[in-house]
Amino acid sequence: MSGLKGIIGAAAVAVGLVAGAPAALAAGGGHGPELKHQSWTFDGLFGRYSEKQLRRGWEVYEGICKSCHTLDYMHYRNLEQIGYTEDEVKEIAARFEVQDGPDEWGDMFMRPATPLDGFAEPYENDAIAMLANGGVVPPNLSVITRARDHGADYVYNLLLGYEDEVPEWATEADPTFSLAPGKSFNTFFPGYAISMPQQLFEGILEYSDGTEATPEQMAKDVSAFLQWAAEPELEERKGLGRMVLLFLIVLTGVLFAYKRELWKDAH
């Protein structure tokens, strides 16, 4: 049995190492305030999305983000997953224009989008996107919470992390720091100088469900929405995962009990 005890001991050490590994949530350059962890409905073993929150998040995306950021790999039909009806999705899609063609004259033309279409691109190509955004292509948002450490927490903190003036702690850490023209100061952006100006202000948006659209509320809702956009499989994954883990506990338990019975005579 010494082998088994040793393995359990080693596993405990390994779990400890793994669990302790993620360093404290560090900020953009490690000098400013710490990234604030939010409590999300999708956290943990029983995490689920809140459809209401995702629909508010969609309203923020549609009202603010969509003019610069794409949601690649996603289609309007996906919005049915967050509780919009088929007709509502058709209506939403029809607000966007997508390119189609060529028609019988050989010309490309614009038409209202249908639920089957991918999300409309704000810019025709990267060159135009750079021209309109100070030389930077606004990143695709459909995988952003997977593509940044701390996922939704990072997005939330970033959206609220703007400072009108370069704060003292930043100049203390690096006396040569100065903000290039056209850039904004963001506590949580690597290097602090971000090309996207602050977007969330009081009163910029009204939610259709009557929730008060404070910057914090909007940041939270749109971060949750982007989490969903990056991991639409999350609820299915965790639901199936709970059953699989439970099954494996029972299976391993029964196998272990049988092994002990079987080996009684062998010792």
């Binding site: 099954f247 029972v250 299976l251 029964v254 009990a257 049988y258 019975e261 079987l262």
Partner: peptide, 16 residues
């Protein structure tokens, strides 16, 4: 008891 555990193991393994 041993047989029961054997059948349970085989059944669970097959289903899984």
């Amino acid at each position: 008891r041993r047989d029961m555990l054997l059948y349970a193991s085989v059944a669970l393994g097959t289903v899984g």
